[in-house]
């Protein structure tokens, strides 16, 4: 019986189970469970401060969970040795929100760093590989520039090139199109789609841009105040009956109904704490 199901079921490359996370005393993630299937583009959405970046940091083992497990490519991150973790990290690529290019290195050096550190390739080969990736992100010829000489969109694309230099199995992108004009941001969406289609990369994208999410996502996870509100396809999300989700989609602010007392208390509370911190 299970045999009939097993072959048709695609493998999960990321499995998150009941993930709980704190920053100091503040609980950020409240029991998040999530599967990402090989070759899909999973978009994580949610309002600002809902914990999207924090979830992403857990997926790339930059934070330790308070409880719950994160499994990447069938390895439990909590039990990996330093060496195994390093090997695993060669299979993931990350494009950070601000690019996080090394400001003391040229674009080319940034992109080649992983090759330099993890392979024995000769310099010419490395340079060719870096140029190939720059070609992919439409930045050919910019390898000798410093990151400070690039525009916002170019930085994001260079970061993408650096993220894919080792041909990772999983690519993480935090807000790849935030703060970019629509043309550039749509070009980055196309790039993500191309990467998935060409090499079957699994991509996890954090964004709060609805349009971009609907364009690239196979499935969407909606995060709200550290909890998962919804996981499903774009179609399912569009037709979801929940008012909370429809509010989110239509960018309607929540919690609009608040009694006058609470409102006043909040106002004065903010005022007092503001004065105290000065």
């Amino acid at each position: 019986m299970s045999q009939a199901i097993a072959p048709s079921r695609p493998a999960s490359v990321i499995e998150v189970e009941d993930l709980v996370s704190y920053y100091g005393p503040r609980q950020i993630l409240r029991g998040v469970s999530l599967d990402v299937i090989e070759g899909e583009i999973m978009v994580i959405m949610g309002g600002s401060g809902s914990g999207k970046s924090t979830l992403l940091r857990h997926l790339m083992a930059l934070e330790r969970p308070s409880s719950g497990t994160v499994r990447l490519l069938e390895r439990d991150l909590a039990t990996l040795s330093v060496r195994d973790m390093n090997d695993l990290r060669k299979k993931i690529g990350v494009a950070f929100q601000g690019g996080a290019l090394f400001s003391s290195m040229t674009v080319g050096e940034n992109i080649m760093l992983s090759l330099h550190e993890h392979t024995e390739l000769d310099p010419t080969t490395m340079r060719i590989m870096a140029r190939l990736k720059l070609e992919v992100v439409d930045l050919a010829g910019f390898e000798d520039l410093m990151p400070s000489e690039l525009s916002g969109g170019m930085i994001k694309r260079a970061a993408m090139a650096r993220a894919i230099i080792m041909d990772p199995k999983i690519l993480f992108c935090d807000e790849p199109s935030a703060g970019l004009d629509p043309v550039v941001s749509s070009a980055i969406d196309d790039l993500i789609l191309r990467l998935r289609d060409a090499v079957g990369m699994t991509v996890v994208v954090v964004t709060h841009e609805l349009e971009s999410a609907f364009k690239i996502a196979d499935r969407i996870t909606v995060l709200d105040k550290g909890e998962i509100l919804f996981i499903g396809t774009v179609e399912e999300l569009r037709n979801h009956p929940s008012e909370r989700i429809q509010n989110l989609l239509n960018r309607r602010a929540e919690d609009e109904v608040m009694d006058a007392d609470a409102y006043l208390r909040r106002l004065t509370g903010i005022e007092v704490s503001g004065a105290a911190s000065l």
């Binding site: 083992a61 930059l62 993931i92 990350v94 996080a100």
Partner: peptide
């Protein structure tokens, strides 16, 4: 601040 340290971590460096 620029997350370059995080970037090193995830690159296995």
């Amino acid at each position: 601040i620029n997350q370059e340290i995080d970037a090193l971590h995830v690159m296995g460096i």
